[in-house]
């Protein structure tokens, strides 16, 4: 077992981990943050996306030991209490979430995109979310959600 000292959603934590554990495993099993999902375990689907020191990463590809000293933000740290982030609200209003399993990762990727590109075109959104697979929506309502989050057009 190893110990990982890090900050998760603003809280300092010391997480115990199997030496082979991935960041995904310690977040889910040690920190109890199950909003981050495993879809493929090989960095293809994006369901496990989190921020590691401000960068969007797939937590299934990050060894837990690499999170030593890092600042991590997960889907649980996106809303402010009960007040949803604009992207979350837009997904809720515009049909961006169906079964919901890709949704946390998709929202993390959308938040990352809007940080870098505050006024994206639909083409920007497509490229920004290309690493996140969704099997339910055909992506149309996800594009709508991200674009409307930008417009603040959330009724």
């Amino acid at each position: 077992m190893i110990k990982v000292n890090c900050s998760v959603n603003g809280q300092k934590q010391t997480l115990r981990a199997h030496s082979m554990a991935r960041l995904l495993d310690v977040l889910r099993e040690e920190a109890g943050l199950t909003g981050t999902k495993e879809g493929c375990g090989e960095g293809e689907c994006g369901a496990c996306s989190v921020f590691l020191n401000g960068e969007l990463v797939m937590s299934c590809l990050v060894p837990a030991s690499q999170a030593e000293g890092a600042e991590i933000r997960t889907i649980e740290g996106i809303a402010s209490g009960e007040a949803l982030h604009a992207v979350q609200q837009a997904f809720l209003t515009n049909g961006g979430a169906q079964c919901g399993i890709c949704t946390p990762g998709m929202i993390m990727a959308a938040v990352a995109l809007l940080k870098k590109t505050p006024n994206p075109t639909e083409a920007d959104v497509r490229v920004g979310l290309a690493g996140n697979l969704c099997r339910c929506t055909g992506y149309m309502k996800i594009f709508d959600s991200v674009l409307r989050a930008v417009q603040g057009a959330n009724p």
Partner: peptide, 8 residues
């Protein structure tokens, strides 16, 4: 939906 978008 709310539970789904916040990861709950």
């Amino acid at each position: 939906g709310r539970d789904k978008v916040v990861g709950r």
